[in-house]
Every structure is written in C-alpha cells, then in structure tokens.
Amino acid sequence: MTKNIMIVGVGGQGTLLASRILGNTVINEGYDVKVSEVHGMSQRGGSVVTYVKYGKKVYSPIVDKGEADIILAFEMLEASRALPFLKKGGIMIANTQQIDPMPVITGAAKYPEDIEGKLKEKVNLISLDASELALKAGNIKAVNVVLIGVMAKSTDIPYEKWVETIKTTVPEKFLEINLKAFDLGYNL
C-alpha cells in the first residue's frame, strides 16, 4: 500500500525542507518515493501544498481528496483547507499558529474562529504550538523540524533513521537546533 502524506502551509514557512527530510528518510528504508513540490509564485506567502508518497511502486506524485494518511499542517487555516484530502481514519497534525491571509488583513474576509475545536470534532487531530517548541530548541525557524518530529512518531520508521537524514539534509551550523527541535516534536 502506498502511504500518502500531505504537507501544507504558507509560502516561506519551510515546508520544502520538511518534505525533503521526509522523502530522504523513506528512500533509506527501501521504498519507492515521489515528492511533489510547489515553486514560484505561490511561494510568495500563498497557500503551499507538498505531497510525499511512498510504497512498493508509486505512480502519481499527487494525493487526491480523501487519500492522505497524514496531513502535516503548518498553519490552522491551511489545515482546514486541506481537510477534504484526509483519508477516513487519517491523522491531521496541525501547528496552532494563525497567519492572516490578505483578504482577512484587508477586512474582506474573516479568519474562522476556533478551527482547532471544529477540526477536533471531525477528525483525529494532533495540535500543538510548534513555534513555542522551535523557540525552545533555539530558533523559531525550526518549526518545520518540530512538526516532522511529531509526524515521525506516527510512522513505523525508527527515531535513529530520521536523525540520520536530518544530519545529511540540514546545514552543519543549524544541526544542533534542528536535532533538538526534532526530539521535542517526537516526544510531544
């Protein structure tokens, strides 16, 4: 069976690094892997979606509605936007951070209230303040690795394998912070 993971967030939040860590970890486990990324205009603060699929043989690089085993959301509004992609019984991991999109900033739309509560009623939600944990690890930018840590716990790939990939994916000078961030997420 192919495992489908979706990473959603706001352009600039570091979703690409998260998908690379995930992708590289699963190939080391001997799976076929496809990772679909978004570059260009959407990266300028728009909604961004990355798909990671792995299994014996993967054809399509994208995930359809109702087929994501795990959704890793970097932001609450993006979590709700991705909701229809979650498989029945799938896990939604969401960072409780809220980033107002331009229509909310200009007053043309309202940021929905209590998304966390509403999602909890519908799906299996693990929510956390990943920014706080990233700060605890030493840098707010490590939010992506905190979230990868939380997700790693929901897979059957052992802790050490993830650490191995982080060591080869992250620049040396940020390694210590990122390993700490991963650990904080993993042991949530």
Binding site: L77, A109, K118, K122
Partner: peptide, 15 residues
Amino acid sequence: AESVNADFDIPVRPP
C-alpha cells in the same frame, strides 16, 4: 474516496 469537508468559510490565501 470519501472525504470530510470543513463546514465553515475558508478565506483564500493568494500570494
């Protein structure tokens, strides 16, 4: 596949 929809309005997030 069967899917769950949010039953509230989700503002768009343009770049």
